[in-house]
């Protein structure tokens, strides 16, 4: 598996991480190494094997429909870099 810088940048963009040319080539080298490691999997025959998403085979528990959480704006707004009128402020969202 080989990555060119554009592919690396595309992945970085999908992950919303800025990356420059130099970093891109360093990263691609390391990612290629890791993917090389991962490639070992391809040799394994997994026909008919059920994918395992969880360590334990149990069902999703359900919660009663009750309001249990209070208004925590005193804390939550303080933790943000920018707020106004009880809103979290970000650069303009374009739809």
């Amino acid at each position: 598996m080989k990555f060119n810088n554009d592919e690396i940048k595309k992945i970085a963009h999908l992950a919303r991480i800025n990356i420059n040319e130099l970093e891109a080539s360093q990263v691609s080298e390391k990612l290629e190494g890791i993917l090389g490691l991962i490639e070992q999997m391809t040799k394994v025959n997994t026909d008919g094997i059920e994918p395992m998403a969880h360590a334990l085979d149990i069902n999703q528990p359900l919660r009663q429909d009750k309001v249990t959480e209070a208004d925590i704006r005193k804390k939550s707004l303080d933790l943000s870099e920018e707020t106004d009128q009880s809103l979290f402020i970000v650069p303009r969202v374009i739809e």
Binding site: I11, A12, V27, L35, I38, M41, V44, T46, P51
Partner: peptide, 29 residues
């Protein structure tokens, strides 16, 4: 960042089956 990018890559369109699903199957083995 490296691991986020690896994770993003293995889940992305066209690679999911080859990487993520395969890994989950071997996890069972």
């Amino acid at each position: 960042k490296r691991r986020i990018m690896i994770g993003t890559y293995v889940l992305s369109a066209g690679y999911y089956d080859a990487y993520y699903l395969k890994a989950q199957k071997i996890r069972r083995l």
